[in-house]
Design a protein around this nucleic acid. Structure first.
Length: 587
RNA sequence: GGCCCCGUAGCUCAAUUGGAUAGAGCGCCAGGCUUCGAACCUGGAGGUUGGGGGUUCAAGUCCCUCCGGGGUCGCCA
């Protein structure tokens, strides 16, 4: 079904069309001036320019045409030619009734196949807050696309193959040279038990990085180990396999806590074998050339406003770069999945990198019919406005951050005297849902390209525009619906009616869901879902404060109001679900 | 130095991509619970959208120019 503004835009478009003007001038949107009307159409001003006439004259004709339609309670002109529109309560009630009955909550289906690349954890490096935004935003966008019927594939895209792997191997060799993995003459299998724990890896990586930076000999050893690993030395491959398995358990722990799942657990290593063939074909196509010892692809265009450096396909030492791997990954994705689009939810600072890669991919014909898009985001900063750090000044591990958030949520529940008589298990579950919900909502509520300040106390507030407030609003509705069922009330499927100002406001808020979805999808902006869900919760709270529902004597009215409650709950749960936020049964 | 992004209420953030009187939350002030969950609701104060100029019926949004912050600028990822 069409959204309410899309429907009204169609009516206004017809009116413009009848005057031989472009139909899209009839675009109707939610009013900026609710005192003058529920909706507005600004097309008359633009039409006046086209028709070289007075905007009010055109507006008069549009108004005359629209007034004949019974769905409007008011159609009027204001200012230079703004057309203000309001619909009748009967019309709104009918619209809401069909919205409530729609499986997709009134949102139009947009079938397509899209692949999302987000998360991007690295082997041996603990996930940190830098991974948080990519994960939360990527997961939410995946859910949004899935909601409109897209076939989505999410790929975690691990950093599991570059020089860091060689650094780890050579650092471990320096510490424990007697391990069988380092014996080049060994034949046969290697132990199944990992020689390192997660803690070992997390300790080893900074040690290795520091050693390579300080000592050219160690750096060269790491480089050679990387080359050996990539060319298939069995001991190194076996060791690397252990690194991968150990790290992956930690990654799954973190993503699991966040409630984020991936369809694909691929990494850079998965495309290693595609690189030589890809480079050969790029050479053959005459796109790659040698420059300063490296193999490059020029991606600059004559009409560029800024300079774009060439993409380095092969370093002067013959090694592949991040860009090469990303190109091969596109090839892999296009060949194995044939998506309509590939979305990269990655820090905005890498925008230039993606521009290079996308241009090279198109030039080389690697991306097929897939659209390539970088969906960037800003950084999460500390209270001082600088990149987020622990009190000690180090990088905050995601694992610790999540523990902190749970702890804080549990504390707040106690302070508010909530969930006191629930079991330990249920309390822990609720604390987790509330804590993670607070974190996700705070992140998604900020437009993705903006930087924002991480302030746990603020996120975890139980009042205002926060995750917990929204969960609370939904839980209150669950509670009243439970009571209604206990009282054997009949909650009708149909016939939602508008009989008061707060009902009308709630109805208008409910009707805006498809529009919020559409805008959020188009702009890849989950913050628009946050805006909608918050406006809805507020409208519901006003409605709830004004009308006492269960004591209503008029059965039809009581039924309609319970129907509004249920519609609000359905939408709150669905919208929060799009943000990756769970609603507890009770709290 | 070149290029990109940003600067909005005391604080944290929005603004349907050029529309009317720039909106929310927190904080502040004043109100509202013997009935469905008050983690709620109602009302109020708070702004030269960093400064200046320009484009037009209309500018936070587009153009120019200063000021301030961040990012980035071929062999890191």
């Amino acid at each position: 079904m069409a959204s309410l503004t899309a429907y009204l835009s169609g009516l206004a478009g017809d009116a413009f069309g009848a005057l031989d003007l472009p139909r899209d001038l009839g675009l109707v949107s939610r009013s900026d001036r609710p005192d003058l009307g529920q909706f507005q159409c600004n097309g008359a001003m633009a039409a006046a320019r086209i028709a070289k006439t007075n905007p009010r004259k055109i507006a008069d004709q549009i108004v005359a045409a629209l007034s004949e339609n019974g769905c409007f309670s008011d159609v009027s002109i204001a200012g230079p030619g703004f057309i203000n529109l309001s619909v009748t309560d009967e019309f709104l009630g009918r619209f809401l009734t069909s919205l409530a009955a729609d499986d997709r909550l009134g949102v139009e289906a947009a079938p397509q196949k899209v692949l999302f690349d987000y998360g991007g954890p690295n082997i041996a490096k603990p996930m940190h807050v830098g991974h948080l935004r990519s994960t939360i935003i990527g997961d939410s966008l995946t859910r949004l696309f899935r909601f409109v019927g897209a076939e989505t594939l999410s790929d975690v895209h691990m950093g599991d193959w570059g020089k860091p792997m060689g650094m780890l191997i050579s650092a471990l060799e320096a510490e424990q040279p007697d391990l069988p993995y380092f014996d080049a003459s060994r034949s046969g299998s290697y132990p199944e038990e990992s020689p390192v724990t997660l803690e070992d890896l997390e300790r080893l990586y900074p040690v290795a990085a520091a050693a390579c930076k300080a000592d050219p000999v160690r750096d060269e050893a790491a480089r050679l180990a990387t080359v050996d690993l990539q060319s298939g030395r069995p001991g190194y491959r076996a060791l690397w396999g252990h690194f991968l398995a150990v790290s992956r358990r930690a990654m799954e722990r973190e993503f699991g806590a966040l409630g984020v799942a991936f369809d694909l657990w691929k990494g850079e290593s998965d495309v290693h074998d595609l690189i030589p063939g890809m480079i050969a074909s790029l050479k053959k196509a005459g796109l790659a050339r040698k420059d300063q010892g490296a193999l490059i692809i020029d991606v600059a265009e004559p009409d560029d406003s800024h300079e774009i450096p060439p993409l380095i396909l092969e370093k002067s030492d013959g090694g592949a770069t991040y860009a090469t791997t990303d190109l091969a990954t596109i090839l892999d994705r296009v060949e194995t999945g044939a998506p309509d689009a590939i979305f990269y939810v990655v820090d905005q600072r890498q925008h230039m990198h993606f521009e290079q890669v996308f241009r090279a991919a198109k030039k080389g014909g690697l991306s097929g019919r897939a659209a390539l898009e970088h969906i960037g985001f800003g950084t999460m900063n500390g209270a001082d406005g600088k990149p987020f750090k622990t009190r000690a000044g180090g990088v905050m591990k995601l694992h610790d951050l999540i523990a902190m958030v749970r702890e804080k949520a549990s504390e707040r529940l106690s302070q508010a005297g909530l969930a006191t008589d629930f079991s330990q298990e249920e309390r822990a579950l609720i604390a987790n849902q509330v804590g993670i919900g607070a974190l996700k909502f705070a992140d998604l509520n900020t437009h993705r390209l903006s930087d924002y300040i991480f302030d746990l106390d603020r996120f975890m507030r139980f009042e205002g525009k926060t995750g917990p407030y929204l969960q609370y609003a939904a839980v209150r509705i669950k509670s009243i619906l439970r009571k209604a069922v206990e009282e054997d009330a009949d909650i009708p499927d149909a016939a939602l009616s508008i009989t008061s100002d707060v009902e009308r406001a709630l109805g208008l808020a409910l009707s805006a869901f498809p529009e919020a979805m559409e805008a959020a999808l188009e702009r890849r902006a989950p913050n628009l879902i946050c805006d909608h869900v918050y406006a809805l919760a507020q409208a519901y709270s006003r409605f709830y404060a004004e009308h006492h529902i269960l004591s209503e004597k008029d059965e039809a009215l009581r039924g309609s109001r319970l129907g509004l409650c249920r519609a609000a709950l359905t939408q709150l749960v669905a919208a929060l679900g799009l943000l990756g936020i769970d609603v507890p049964k009770r709290m």
